Amino acid sequence: MPAELLSLFPLQPAAETVFPDETATAEEAIVSPVAAAAALAPRLFGQAASSDQPGGFPKEEFQWLRAAGLLTAPLAHKLGGADLMRPAYTLDLLHTLKHIGRGNLAVGRVYEGHANALQLLQRYGRPAQVQQWAANARAGHLFGVWNTEAQDGVWLEPLAGGRYRLHGSKTFGSGAGQLTRPLITGKLPDGGWQMFVLPTDQQPTAIDPSFWQPLGMQATASFRVDLTNAEIGPDDLLGQPGDYYQQPAFSGGAIRFAAVQLGGAEAVFDETRRFLRATGRTDDPYQRMRLGEMAVLIESGNLWLRGAADHAARPEADADATVAYANMVRTAIEEICLKTLLLAERCVGARGLLRPEPFERLHRDLTHYLRQPAPDAALADAGRFVLQQPSPAYSLWKDE
């Protein structure tokens, strides 16, 4: 496995950070999720090809994440986690996601959904619900978010006693068949959009793997899931109708998947460098030029992650500014990843794109994962925001 790119351009000593529990002694301090993810990345990378197949899922890899404490890391300290979703720890969250993506983009995609779900549960759940779902996470249950749907979307039929029967399907249900506590959205009779958590180990669901015939990210198992005839009760409902789309959390979360994507670009960089060394092509001036370009791109992405973290830590930032900044981050990192892929192709040539070299899989996975919804609208929203601001460019995103 090639040396980590992080060692070339260290942004901060994040891998040495610890998250102390306010009620714990120094000896009981919680080890940084960044360090755990960085240590796990080479192992994830080495295993990635085995689950890269139709219907595959990185089951063993998620056991490794559980053992490393990463599945509980998004929980607050008092719930047994590392409080990774606290705004002050945003850079550590992004670095954790990046390292997991560097190891395996499919694992990173599912883990990002797990972290997102735990964040939403802690934000909108009632105290008893949060305690229960945190206990589920500590017991090893995998969470995620299923929101995308087609014409046969999910709706809730009211029953007696505050219960509901579910009807309809979700598409792109990442981790289908593996997630036991997906956070799902559905339509109420009055048109409201309600979140709920479905214990899929207790309720019937029908999975359609034929839906998922992707270019890449095969191992995310993003199948169509039919929830018809499953039932939920009042304790399964999360928050109020419409909470899921509250800003800036909804659009601002784009920085998380951008961090995973940047991890994929780092893997491409590392493998390109390894390939050139192995084939004795490091003295070629054009290869050196391309690697220089790639290094600039990767470090630019890391600086965008730092900017996103700095912005998240600003208590005075308004929702529009946070959404606009997140949209710039996802746009910039998408371009960084696409340019990195192009340069890597030119570096390794046709020979490097043959299996068992990892470029073919990395290229498919990263290209597919970059196709996040509404990229043009995201960039236009950032433009709308800056056009409305009276501040000069140097102070658009911070007060000086």
Rank of each mutant, 00 (worst) to 15 (best):
L142G: 00
R181K: 12
I232R: 07
A106F: 04
Q12F: 15
S174Q: 07
L387D: 14
T205V: 11
A254G: 12
S7V: 11
A344S: 14
W397K: 12
S51K: 08
S174F: 01
Y244W: 13
G186T: 03
L370R: 04
R86K: 11
L65G: 12
Y111F: 15
A36G: 02
G307P: 02
A206R: 13
R126S: 11
T185M: 09
F19P: 01
D83S: 10
E357H: 15
P248L: 12
A278P: 10
L291S: 05
S50E: 14
R138Q: 15
G253L: 11
A88L: 14
L237M: 11
V107S: 02
P42R: 10
F359L: 11
N104Q: 07
D376K: 10
A249R: 10
N147T: 11
W64K: 01
V268T: 08
A41H: 01
W146T: 07
L97P: 01
L366D: 05
P58F: 00
N104Y: 03
L121H: 06
I333N: 00
D236K: 12
A308N: 07
A380Y: 04
G216H: 03
Q194V: 06
L118W: 12
G162P: 15
Y369M: 06
T185W: 03
L354G: 08
I184F: 05
P315I: 07
M294W: 02
E27H: 06
R314K: 15
V110E: 00
E266W: 01
K170C: 00
A317K: 10
R384T: 05
R288Q: 15
H141I: 01
E157H: 14
E266A: 03
L142S: 00
L353V: 04
D21Q: 09
L121A: 12
A48V: 11
D365Y: 02
V31R: 11
Y89L: 13
I298N: 00
E266K: 01
D243G: 07
A35R: 05
Y89I: 06
A321V: 02
P214Q: 08
